[in-house]
Structures are given as C-alpha cells and as structure tokens.
C-alpha cells in the first residue's frame, strides 16, 4: 500500500550509488549475455546434431587401379564380384536403410558440383581419381560402427568414411565455444553477485539512519529490507534486459552464420529464443535478489 514510499526509496538508493549501479548492471548484462549465448549455442548444436544424425550416411570407397592403400594393393582393384556381393550383403543388414552405388563418372560429377567454387581443385582432378563407392543410408545412425567394421576388411573395399566423424569435429568446436561462454558466464555471475553485495552494503550504510529509525518505530523486517531487495532485483532486471539484446544478436548473427556453414535447415524457433531470454532474465533477477538478501542479513541487523 505504500508503494510510492518504497519506490522512492529504491530510486534514491540506485541514484546515490550510481557508479556502483552502472557497474552491477554492466556485469550482470555481460554475464547473462554469455549465459544466454551458451544456452543458444547448446540448443542450436543439439538441433543440428539431430538433423544430421537423421541424414548421415556412410560412404564405402572401393579399390581402383590407383588406390594407394596397402589393402587395395594387396587385393587389387575391386572386381564386379566383390562389388555385387558387397551390395547384397549391405542390403541384407538390418541397420541399413538403403544402398546406392555411385560409379566413377557419377562420383566425379558430384565432386565437380561440390567444389564448383574451387576451380583449381576441380582442374587438378580427373575422372577416375574419385573411386566408385557405395552410399549407405543407415536406419539407425548410432549403429554405424557395426556396419563399418563388417565391411572394412572385405576385398575390394578401400576405406569407409562416415560423415559423422567430420561433423563431430565441428560439433566439438561448438561444444568448446559453449563451455567457454558458460564458464566465463559463471565467473562473471560470481563477480556480479559480489558487486551487488557491495552495492547493497553501501546502500544500507548510507541509509543506516533511516533503517535505524524504521527498526525503532517497529517497521517489519520485510518492510525495511524490501527497498534493498528491490534495488538488487531492478539491477538484475535491467542487466537482463540489456543481455536479451545481446542474446537476440547472437541468434541472428552467430547462429545464422553457423547454419549457413552447415546447410542445415534447422532454425531455432522464436519460442526457444524467448525461453533462453526468459531464463537469463529470471536468473539475473534471482541472483541479484538473493545476493542482496544475503548481504542484508550480514549488514542490516534487524
């Protein structure tokens, strides 16, 4: 009911410690932005993982005349018989969804298409350099190892390459990015909590006369602490709002870039973005309020 009174107390408190308030808001904003970015990267990467897991295929390259590997040199190039039995066996495997044979001409064409923007590479290669191969689509991508092992040592098989190995390397990079962001965020959040503690302590000290009188005339603890708690909460809220801006920027600049690299049509939904923003803001407000509360318990004896 005395909202006006409480609000004016908060305003006075925030203005009196303006430099500290700015420091707190900045720290909170940075830490929440990093936290949010970490969460977004996490969601994006797991979405892309899911996307690629469904589409991942194994490519089994067959031996040709020019294959340099030891296995191929010992057994010679793949014969029609090798190829047919391999195809039949692959089709019989329950883990395999479909098998497609790509002959050297088709492989060469595919190669030209993929690297059309690197003319030098295309020119340095000729038909026959890309061995004929089987594209194997898996029913369950997690079972790729079993398929890989069963065909690895067959005559005529040069090597088995899995898209997953390549993608995993990139995903590891993003995981690293995510953890770096989250770790810095945690450190920053800890710093923010300490800063808030200090700000509230200053605030409590500069208002000790008022709080002393409030205590004396029998104001309830809640009423005495409320302006300080709200002061912390407002710092957290403003920091959170600023951080939301950074989070939105992360979504539209960084994540869209990542998607371009991966040609994956997995865009994070607005809902996911909003939930990350919501979590960051709530985290900021909670952290600041709790830090204020703990500080008050030490410095504002009621």
């Amino acid at each position: 009911m005395r909202a006006q009174f409480v609000l004016s107390e908060i305003w006075i408190g925030l203005r009196r410690n303006l430099t500290m308030t700015v420091a707190v808001i900045t720290t909170v904003a940075i830490s929440l932005a990093l936290f949010g970015a970490g969460m977004l990267i996490n969601q994006q990467v797991s979405a892309m993982r899911g996307y690629w897991d469904e589409r991942i295929s194994i490519t089994i390259y067959l031996c040709t005349e020019s294959s340099p590997s030891k296995h191929c040199i010992e057994n010679g190039p793949a014969t029609d018989e090798d190829r047919n039995s391999l195809q039949a066996d692959l089709k019989a495997m329950p883990e395999v969804a479909s098998v497609e044979y790509v002959d050297q001409a088709a492989a060469w064409e595919d190669f030209q298409n993929r690297f059309s923007n690197r003319q030098a590479l295309v020119e340095a290669t000729q038909e026959g350099d890309i061995p004929d191969n089987f594209r194997v689509q898996l029913a369950d991508p997690s079972k790729y190892e079993r398929v890989q092992q069963s065909v690895q040592d067959r005559p005529g098989v040069d090597m088995v390459s899995n898209d997953k190995d390549v993608l995993d390397r990139f995903f590891e990079l993003f995981d690293g990015l995510k953890w770096a962001a989250l770790i810095v965020a945690v450190v920053q959040l800890a710093a923010a909590a300490l800063l808030i503690g200090n700000t509230i302590r200053l605030s409590a000290y500069s208002r000790r006369r008022e709080t002393g009188i409030m205590r004396l005339v029998g104001a309830s603890n809640f009423y005495i602490q409320l302006p300080f708690l709200l002061e912390g909460a407002i710092c957290g809220l403003i920091g959170g709002v600023i951080a939301s801006g950074f989070i939105v920027a992360t979504r539209f600049f960084l994540l869209d870039k990542i998607q371009d690299w991966f040609y994956s049509g997995v865009e994070l939904s607005t809902g996911a973005l909003l939930s990350v923003i919501g979590m960051s803001v709530i985290l900021g407000v909670l952290l600041c309020t709790i830090a204020s509360f703990l500080t008050l318990r030490r410095y504002l004896r009621v």
């Binding site: 008022e210 009188i213 004396l216 005339v217 029998g218």
Partner: peptide
Amino acid sequence: VPHLRRRIGCVFQDFRLL
C-alpha cells in the same frame, strides 16, 4: 519484535531526525 516496538516510543540524546 517489530510489533512490540510499535507499542514503545523512543527518544534519544541525539534526536535522530532525518
């Protein structure tokens, strides 16, 4: 305790005004 203090008024040597 606050409710107890509402039933007790206090005056000090140093006034303690705002």
